[in-house]
């Protein structure tokens, strides 16, 4: 058992299951670009305390000082170096994004698997609950909850995680429902295997790659939501994140004073990170879906190999 899932034979064209290989994913240019972008931001977040030119808690220059050779991205309203803030800001955004996503994927996968596997009234009940969460306008509810509970990082994480699982649940449910009808699952059931055995040995390994793709895509939404909540002032006000950087700048009238450097760098960072995650997630998804390659719909025709005697003299 332990060796089966690790040493998979390369058979990515198998029509029976998802079997993307890392190489298959990375052969796509978008995947490589996305991976590089994500790796870049993660590296910076990890080493930011050592590469920041100035302290992020003390003033090192004037209020809204324009970019200069000493301060490449200028300074914020408190005279803190902008570059240092932006380098540090990714940390919490990414932590919140990752933890919230894990919560969301955890809830979504559990509900999806249970609902798809057992069907019947379990399915009906869980899917009705999912429907309720789906129709709730998410950002409004997030704001309401964050406002009621008070601004705090953990609240942001819980709010995002508890509202983002619906898409995952529906996707996984559909996939599990089709796996449930596979003959080999029926065969194992007829062998006398319990539900837990089937779910852990035959269902979850099959949907694993799909979960990975879904997780990467969910991170983009989580990071975006975190930034949005922070910008609205519903996150921990003392934490340095891209959202709070923009919020501070906005509050202190950076826009009207023409201090674009207080908003644009943080905004671009969020945009690039989300784009990187999205490109990577989409590429994994494409590698998972062989149906997108439909060769018989191409306009190319079969070729003729030259034949002696073919041509005008052939009858």
């Amino acid at each position: 058992m332990s060796t089966t899932t690790v040493n998979q034979a390369p058979d990515s064209e198998s029509p029976y299951g998802f079997r993307p290989t890392l190489r298959g994913v990375l052969q796509q240019k978008t995947a490589l670009a996305g991976l590089l972008i994500v790796a870049f931001f993660v590296t910076i977040a990890l080493i930011s305390p050592w590469i920041e030119p100035y302290s992020i808690s003390e003033a090192s220059c004037g209020v809204f000082e324009a970019p200069s050779r000493a301060h490449w991205l200028g300074c914020d309203d408190g005279g803190v170096d902008m570059l240092s803030l932006v380098l540090r800001g990714g940390r919490i955004s990414m932590i919140v994004g990752a933890v919230a996503t894990l919560i969301a994927i955890g809830i979504g996968a559990t509900i999806g698997v249970l609902s798809g596997y057992f069907g019947g009234w379990v399915d009906t009940l869980l899917m009705r609950i999912t429907d309720y969460f789906l129709v709730v306008p998410q950002v409004v509810l997030m704001i309401a909850i964050a406002a009621v509970w008070g601004p705090s990082l953990s609240h942001v994480i819980i709010v995002i995680g508890a509202l983002m699982w619906t898409g995952t649940a529906r996707l996984i449910r559909a996939q599990v429902k089709s796996l449930r009808e596979r003959v080999y699952v029926k065969r194992v059931e007829a062998l006398g295997a319990g539900h837990a055995h089937i779910i852990f040995n035959h269902i979850i390994p099959q949907i694993g790659p799909l979960l990975v793709a879904n997780t990467v895509l969910a991170i983009t939404v989580a990071i975006f939501n975190e930034t949005a909540l922070a910008f609205l002032g519903l996150s921990d006000p003392t934490a340095v994140t891209w959202g709070t950087i923009m919020e501070h700048a906005f509050d202190r009238a950076a826009v009207s004073s023409g201090a674009w450097w207080a908003i644009v760098p943080a905004g671009l960072s969020v945009a690039f990170l989300i784009m990187g995650c999205y490109m990577l997630g989409r590429s994994i998804e494409d590698a998972l879906n062989p149906r997108l390659k439909v060769s018989y719909l191409s306009t190319h025709f079969w070729r003729l190999r030259p034949l002696v005697g073919r041509g005008p003299d052939a009858l």
Partner: peptide, 14 residues
């Protein structure tokens, strides 16, 4: 003449 585009044919069909 209904072969996929990866096909290559030689010989004759009369």
């Amino acid at each position: 003449g209904l072969l996929p585009s990866s096909a290559e044919v030689s010989g004759r069909v009369l």
